[in-house]
Amino acid sequence: MKSFLIITRRSPYGTSYGKEALDAVLMASAFVPVSLLFLDDGVFQIKQHQDADCIEIKDYSPTFAVLEQYDVKNIYVSASSLQHRGLTEKDLVLDVEVISDARIANLLDTNAVVLSF
């Protein structure tokens, strides 16, 4: 079965890309093995303590915790994206694997389908 890698690269509220990536992961996971990679400003989607009620938007960061139930076990975050933004693994709402740029290149190689949001 073809494996999917979904890359989410945008901050959570400025655009709808992040939410769309999450919806794509949930849907694809019913049919194929899916991995999810938080890259660039995408890492801000899983920053702790979000409270989008302040700006009257639905906060979807709690939904990421459901991914395990959907058999999405491979969740990666770019180490360099975190570092550039002054963040560490401890700032995130989710248990993730923090990976190097070289590992990211490897993920792009080994997954049959790569979707970037």
Binding site: Y13, K47, Q50, A52, D53, I57, D59, S61, G86, L87
Partner: peptide, 12 residues
């Protein structure tokens, strides 16, 4: 402040 708080960045 509200945009900062929404994004969970008060501690950063």
């Amino acid at each position: 402040a509200p945009d900062l708080e929404a994004r969970g960045l008060l501690d950063k």
